[in-house]
Design a protein around this nucleic acid. Structure first.
Lengths: 404, 404
DNA sequence: GGATGGTACCTGTACGTACAGGTTGATCCC
DNA sequence: GGGATCAACCTGTACGTACAGGTACCATCC
């Protein structure tokens, strides 16, 4: 198990060395008090200059990992864990309005606590400037790593990119990625969940299936759901419809407003839905971006006299609490948000213990929960537009998990 | 007062520079946030190499004296002198399963952040031993104060009592009190909310009103709701019924289990409810301890053929998300949990800033939200058992607030 | 007036050299 | 055998160069 340094990596040489030293020391591979190879030894073995080796060693020393004795050599510190108050993990979320976020935090806290870390919780409230300030403060609070569900903004000026590049503290992105930000990432299988949901509808004989969303298609999870919707339809030889976008338009640089209306049920949107449902060429099924929008569709359907699922099938996403308590219990795609948080914390702790590899990505399975809001398409329509039936709703293999 | 470097000194050049930087910064001669001369500037002015300058600056950085920003320059740290006065607040909750707890945390974080503090979030998972460990760790993490929603247990051995007695860090209790624990406390007006809810039912002509709960009457908030229920009935000259307790019995020392079943809807309980509702002497209205139990009552009513609100009125508590999305939108009592968290953080910050007085208690108003699940009692029953009508539903005066 | 591009400046990264002064252990001399 | 000596090796100090990539500012052009 030699130390490996890659010239191709974007991570600076001295940080590569530092990370691997940290890994060996914290994992116990090099026991406390043992002697490290000398600077010239490392220099020769790794093919880098002594200055670079020294840079890594100095950092390791200031982290309390090693002790250097002039004339004698370099040694693993007796207590390589460092000062006791440094077992903090920063946690930043762009928002804390939904149950989804509660589950995520609960999962992260659960796993962090079991590994001896505590969570420093911050809410950026969709404000990138606030997020920058919070990142700074977390560094000042001496956090060892940061879990972040970032606000939306790709400007490279934001502190997040700088941190990711510097590699001073490891980062783990939750739920969404940002273009150009290279670090560990966990998310749910939004694509697979949408694919399974729409396949389920196709299997029931539906041919005209609408995708209902707010105008926030640039959000990665929503984009993935749209992709899954389209893929399922196209593989069945059906045509995706133009997405139904309700609510205020999503502005390029100010997604904050779109997110703000994310949870608000405005009557204007119900009106618009009623108009779209009260037409002869209406779809026979709707796949909604989330349960709240599905709820709005349910209301609009009732108002124009459509029965669910007899006249209109509905599928939501997220399996929120309300899904099973609606008048017509909602078929929906569940995410294991708790596990998502746990996995994020695991990724981070592994980095803190020195895991050296390139950025990892984990996509957790979603699960289609079939309830009363989906049923067979009307026989009339089935005979009118006979298409190939998909044999079985596909979904990433999933084990049972609950939302609470 | 120029920086002087002596080649004759036995002190290394970079240490000479570091010492003078440290002096200037800690003495306030260079104020926090101000900019240091650039590396090349120092190099020229002092006649030493850039490497040597960098050596000093790196050390100053790891001492927390300065902050370096690529592309911009080097700056005196905002808090030079290290982190002796950390701005961390510990937050312990006994549980993190409901939206209520999310709102509470969100409120506390919001106010703490605006006052310059960060929240160190921990979940004791209803385990008093774990809570003890977490309290210890928070102290080791140098928190300045602690917000806690404690697990249930009155044994004076628990760490919490020691802390309150020692007064090393201020404590604020949230939602519930513990007998014998003297410290600041915030809660909702459970009594007033229940009183308003039951008064609303009485005003509608109901005479037989049941109190539906799980066997956890020893929980202070539940006890307060029961007290409000009884007071409203008695003041109207009516008799409270024996509480309907559904689910596993609440054991004295192990409330964990009762809380565990808190959110589970078991069909056994529905069966029991159906039995109780399918009798001639059934109540005409039910005041449920929370919305989830009200939901169960709604199901049971439908199963025995009772219409809500025509045959049975229902009131819940908490105004959870599901309340307004139920088949029959639920009349319920809303708590301003966000404000509760804010107030708790305010209490704590005031203590941190030196507020000296005795323990304070704040009870935040609740708000009755009348929806479709409550209606007038049947004329038959009104004539059968005419009683004095209460003039107006009383409630602590409240301003509008939302749950999201 | 506002986007655009150039330029100066800043820190980060990485390489190299040279010498000082301490520790260690083998060797040599008395 | 015991002490002095020396070479090998270690880290510390100090110098130098070169380039990359970011920020900030200003002049320019449309």
């Amino acid at each position: 198990m030699e130390i490996q340094i890659s010239r191709e990596s974007t991570i600076p040489l001295h940080l590569q060395l530092l990370n691997q030293l940290r890994h060996r020391i914290l994992s116990g591979h090099w026991p406390p008090g043992s002697r490290l190879p000398s600077e010239t030894m490392l220099q020769r073995r790794l093919g880098i200059s002594r200055s670079t080796v020294r840079q890594a060693l100095h950092r390791a020393e200031s982290e309390g990992l090693i002790e250097r004795v002039p004339g004698k050599g370099t040694f693993v510190a007796r207590q390589p864990g460092g000062p006791p108050n440094s077992r903090l993990i920063g946690y930043i979320t762009f928002d804390f309005l939904s149950d989804f976020q509660r589950q995520l935090l609960r999962g992260a806290e659960d796993r962090a606590r079991s590994r001896g870390y505590r969570i420093l919780f911050c809410n950026s409230n969709r404000d990138v400037a606030e997020e920058d300030r919070l990142l700074e403060q977390l560094l000042a609070d001496q956090v060892r790593g940061i879990l972040i569900w970032p606000a939306l903004d790709n400007r490279p000026s934001r502190r997040l990119f700088h941190l990711a590049q510097q590699c001073r503290v490891p980062l783990v992105l939750m739920d969404r990625t940002l273009p150009g930000l290279r670090c560990d990432h966990v998310s749910s299988d939004n694509y697979g969940g949408a694919y399974a949901a729409v396949s389920h509808l196709i299997e029931l004989g539906h041919r005209r299936i609408a995708f209902l969303s707010r105008p926030i298609l640039q959000l990665e999870p929503v984009a993935e759901r749209l992709r899954g919707y389209r893929a399922a339809l196209q593989e069945a030889g059906l045509s995706p419809l133009e997405p139904w976008l309700l609510g205020a338009p999503g502005r390029e640089m100010d997604v904050g407003y779109a997110l703000h209306t994310y949870h608000a049920a405005s009557s204007q949107e119900i009106q618009e839905l009623m108009r779209r449902l009260d037409r002869p060429d209406r779809p026979t099924a709707i796949f909604a971006m989330n349960d709240l929008m599905a709820t709005q569709a349910l209301k609009a359907a009732a108002l124009v006299g459509l029965q669910v699922p007899e006249d209109l099938s509905l599928v939501g996403f997220d399996d929120m609490d309300i899904a099973r308590h609606l008048e017509v219990p909602l078929t929906t795609v569940a995410q294991d948000t708790f596990a998502l948080g746990q996995r994020a914390a695991e990724f981070l702790v592994e980095r803190l213990e020195g895991y050296p590899g390139p950025p990892r990505r984990e996509v957790l399975p979603t699960q289609l929960r079939i309830r009363a809001s989906t049923g067979p398409a009307r026989a009339v329509e089935r005979t009118r537009a006979p298409g190939p039936l998909v044999e079985k709703a596909q979904c990433t293999p999933c084990q049972g998990f609950t939302n609470s």
